[in-house]
């Protein structure tokens, strides 16, 4: 698609961006003393299905659906957005492999809003029809299935599928002509690698485990990052200081939740230039990611209020807003 084909869609997204939460509106939400007040505020802003239902999960689910309804209506070519659903797709694969291998049925463990739904994925895994899965998924599914059956190691199964997901995202980024998808893929893989390094360091995992879990990308060296993780948290920070993710080192020093927040904020930084782009698919992708981040932030606030967290500890977890 040519960039000019997105003129209508970008202008509409620009108008829609007005209804995204700004930092001051998040502050208002934070200032609510009770969960009901938050829900009331969200409902006044048009969140939910319009029936006045105050069920949190329904409201947040409906907001996710609304985002995709708009994008489906606007985008001349939906294939650009496939890469955004890879995490959900590979999650479905992981859940299906575990359910089939352990024969334990979980409730609501699948995402239904992606190209292969939970039921379809279960069918494929039960019949071992790996050829029906797209890209590298078939290979990863077979390996994860065999590994889980032989070793009963759920974590290893997760590592195989998660690595395949990161590889698929990176490949999709390399193939894509859209700059935002390339940047999204690079940031997603790099941040995931950094998260793996930090968590592996905390749980004292081996270098081999880390190398198996991390995916290759341009801005992070798997070799150096895994060595740094094996040497300790300070070594990870030192390594990050020499990369494009230097701010992550400071966040790591602060606290775990500050680090998690930085991971999401870094993605926001990647997409923020799209606010000033009037053509191309970039602003549409940025809108989807901004909505996802907004919904995640609202979920964090609501969960915090539900569990009686202090305003300060919720604030520490609040993500930067796009607008």
């Amino acid at each position: 698609m040519k960039d000019l084909d997105y003129t209508y869609a970008v202008a509409r997204v620009r108008a829609l961006e007005n209804s995204l939460f700004s930092d001051s509106e998040i502050e208002r939400l934070l200032a609510c003393t009770e969960e009901e007040q938050c829900l009331q505020l969200l409902s006044e802003k048009g969140w939910g299905d319009g029936t006045g239902s105050m069920d949190i999960s329904d409201m947040l689910k409906r907001e996710e659906e609304k985002t995709w309804e708009v994008i489906r209506e606007l985008a001349p070519d939906m294939s650009v957005f496939d890469v955004l659903s890879y995490p959900k797709l590979y999650h479905n694969l992981k859940a299906a492999v575990k359910q089939v291998c352990t024969e334990v049925e979980g409730e609501s463990i699948f995402y239904e809003d992606c190209s292969i739904t939970g039921e379809e994925m279960l069918q494929i895994v039960r019949n071992k029809e790996w050829g029906q899965l797209p890209g590298n998924m078939g290979e990863a599914a077979a390996e994860a299935y065999d590994t889980l059956l032989h070793t009963r190691d759920g974590q290893l199964c997760d590592v195989i599928v998660d690595k395949a997901a990161l590889d698929a995202i990176y490949e999709a980024g390399k193939r894509s002509k859209a700059e935002i998808i390339r940047n999204y893929a690079e940031s997603t893989v790099a941040i995931a690698d950094i998260k793996i390094a930090v968590r592996s360091q905390k749980t004292a995992k081996s270098i081999d485990f880390m190398k198996r879990a991390m995916a290759q990308c341009e801005t992070i060296s798997v070799e150096q990052l895994s060595k740094a993780a094996a040497a300790g948290m300070d070594a990870i920070r030192d390594y990050l200081l020499g990369t494009a993710y230097a701010e992550g080192a400071a966040a790591l020093q602060e606290s775990s939740s500050a680090f998690e927040r930085w991971c999401d904020n870094r993605m926001m930084e990647t997409i923020r230039p799209q606010k000033y782009n009037s053509f191309s698919v970039g602003p549409l992708v940025a809108y989807v990611l901004a909505r996802e981040s907004e919904i995640k932030t609202v979920r964090i606030i609501l969960t915090g209020k539900q569990n009686g967290f202090s305003e300060e500890s919720i604030r520490e977890r609040i993500r930067e807003m796009y607008v």
């Binding site: 509409r12 997204v13 620009r14 108008a15 009037s278």
Partner: peptide, 14 residues
């Protein structure tokens, strides 16, 4: 034509 597409996008929302 180009400006009209953008204008339609904005007017459809507002």
């Amino acid at each position: 034509g180009i400006a009209g597409q953008a204008a339609s996008g904005v007017v459809s929302e507002d």
